[in-house]
Each structure stands twice: as C-alpha cells, then as structure tokens.
C-alpha cells in the first residue's frame, strides 16, 4: 500500500502541491489524471522518492520512501523523459539494473527478449523513441518490482506494442499483486486498465474514486417533453451541465441510473435516453465544475 498524508511541495516559492492525501491499495492500478501543470509529475516523483516533500509523509508498506534503499529496491519509476547512459547497449543496461535491483530475474529478461524482439547488443540511444520506451518496460518488468510508477507510459508506443505492454503489466498485477500508478492525459488508455482514479488540479486532489463507482454516479441524459421542460424536475436533479439541442435537452446529472430514470419518467418525457459517461467526459465536466472549462479554451 502506498500512503500519502498531507504532502506539500513548492518550487521557488511556487506552490505545486497542496496537502495531498491519498491511498493506493496493493494490487491496484491507479490512474492519476490532471490538467496540464497540475502537479502530476511532481507527485509521482515524490512517490518514487526522487523529490522530497516539504510537509507530510509518503509511505510504502509503512516505511518512508525518500532515501530508503529497501523500499526503492522494490519499486521502478519510468519517467516521461527516459534516461539511459550514453553508449550503453541494452545488455549493459540490463547488467546495471541487475546490480541495483535484488529481485532482478534474468530468465524473465531472456523471455521478454522474444516478446520485444530488440537486439540487445545495440546501443539504446540508437533506437527510436518508441523502442527506447519498450526497453524501459523490458528492464522494469525484469526487475520484478512490487510497485511501478509510470509517467505518461504509453506515449510513442504503437497500438500493437501498447497492447503487449498493457498485457504484460496486467499479468504482473494478476500473478503477484504488483501495484501500478499511471499518469496520463490520454484518458482512453487509462480507462481500459485502471480500477481507481484520482484527478489532480492546481496541486489539489479534486476527486478520488473507484472508476466503476465514479461512472455509476454520473450520467448523460437526453430528454424532450411534450410542452415545456418541467422546472420542478430540474430542481430535483443534480444538474452539472445543460445544453439545448432543438427541443431536446442534454443534461449531465449526478446520481444512479435508477434514481434518475425514476425522477425523469415521473414527468412522462417524449424522449428519454440515459447513457453512462466516458472517463474523458467525466474529466471534462468535473474540471468544468472548478472553472477549467472547455468553453474558455475554445472561444
């Protein structure tokens, strides 16, 4: 389990994280979402023990992370800008990882060679961006960590490789309860594999929830009424957003499917459609709620 309590961080008087408290369960895949500049990378680096928070605590299995070799031995961080030693081949990088991570599994490394199909005698710097990312995953998976922290991990991977990498990650979660923290703007990518998401905005955690619960609690409603829209109904529903499309109303409503259906149907709508939201839509409407609007950008 990863536990953050009251974490605060500033860079040169600029506050980046305010009082972040969150828990990530063992064996969970946690998606950290957020607007640009929200503090995602900083938060991940603090979790990985690369940066030190000014206030609060970061604990993994009840031990602090920062400068704790024992914890870090079981954790791999893949940053969004990869770093490999210049002139090192994949084989040499593997040797280096083997020296650092006590859990390194050489047979796993060999096995993954067939899956990734890259030449281990070649210098990492000679590979393309996407291939370098594959090398990073290859090394990380061979180190058999308990925790993987991934910053924009799927950037630059083609769809085939992405699928392969996701499957490998899921395998480790299923087989040995590995915990994964993923940050991404690409919400489609996260939606497939995460079970828990947290949304970060301006250094605050806006919301943190089980992904399915999150989806079960917010719906898109399209409704039309014979005469005019009953004003009372609008009061009864927790509306987050309203749009008029001809005579059809589009509402984003908080609440469960059953409750919303019952309330709307009481006013006998002529048209009534209820859809779950995609994670992307949830993100947009939640952000809209704190004044980070799409409309503000698309003037």
């Amino acid at each position: 389990m990863i536990e953050l309590r009251g974490v605060e961080k500033s860079f040169q008087n600029q506050r980046v994280l305010n009082d972040i408290t969150l828990q990530i369960k063992t064996g969970s895949i946690y998606g950290l979402l957020g607007s640009n500049g929200a503090g995602k990378t900083t938060l991940l680096k603090i979790m990985a023990g690369i940066l030190k928070q000014e206030e609060g605590s970061v604990q993994m299995k009840e031990a602090p992370v920062y400068e704790n070799n024992e914890v870090k031995n079981k954790m791999v961080f893949i940053p969004d800008r990869l770093y490999f030693f210049s002139h090192y081949t994949i084989e040499q990088m593997a040797k280096f990882y083997q020296n650092i991570y006590s859990g390194w599994d050489q047979s796993r490394f060999e096995e993954l060679k067939d899956i990734f199909g890259l030449d281990i005698k070649k210098k990492v710097s000679q590979f393309s961006k996407g291939m370098q990312r594959q090398v990073a995953f290859w090394l990380a998976l061979s180190a058999m960590p308990d925790i993987m922290i991934l910053d924009e991990p799927f950037d630059g991977l083609d769809p085939v490789v992405r699928k392969k990498v996701k499957n490998l990650l899921i395998r480790d979660v299923a087989e040995r309860q590995m915990t994964i923290v993923i940050s991404s703007h690409n919400l489609r990518e996260v939606e497939d594999i995460c079970d828990y998401v947290g949304i970060l905005h301006n250094g605050d955690i806006l919301l943190e929830k089980d992904l399915d619960d999150l989806k079960a609690d917010i719906h898109k409603v399209q409704a039309a009424f014979r005469n005019h829209v009953p004003a009372k109904l609008k009061q009864e529903l927790t509306l987050l957003h309203e749009e008029k499309r001809g005579s059809v109303r589009l509402w984003i409503v908080r609440g469960s499917e059953e409750v919303i259906t019952e309330k709307v149907e009481a006013y006998s709508p002529v048209v009534f459609d209820l859809l779950p939201l995609t994670l992307e839509e949830i993100f947009i409407y939640e952000m809209g709620g704190v004044g980070y609007n799409v409309e503000n950008i698309l003037v």
């Binding site: 064996g27 969970s28 895949i29 499957n167 395998r171 979660v173 299923a174 087989e175 594999i193 399915d212």
Partner: peptide, 18 residues
C-alpha cells in the same frame, strides 16, 4: 480464474473480481 481471465483479456483483475 480471475488471473487467467485478466491475462487472456488484458483486463484489470480487480475489475474481474468485482
């Protein structure tokens, strides 16, 4: 099993468990 299905379908094991 949850594990087999997770690996086969690339779905989060926690989701299958649920």
């Amino acid at each position: 099993s949850v594990r087999t299905l997770a690996k086969q379908m690339t779905i989060n094991p926690n989701t299958i468990q649920k």
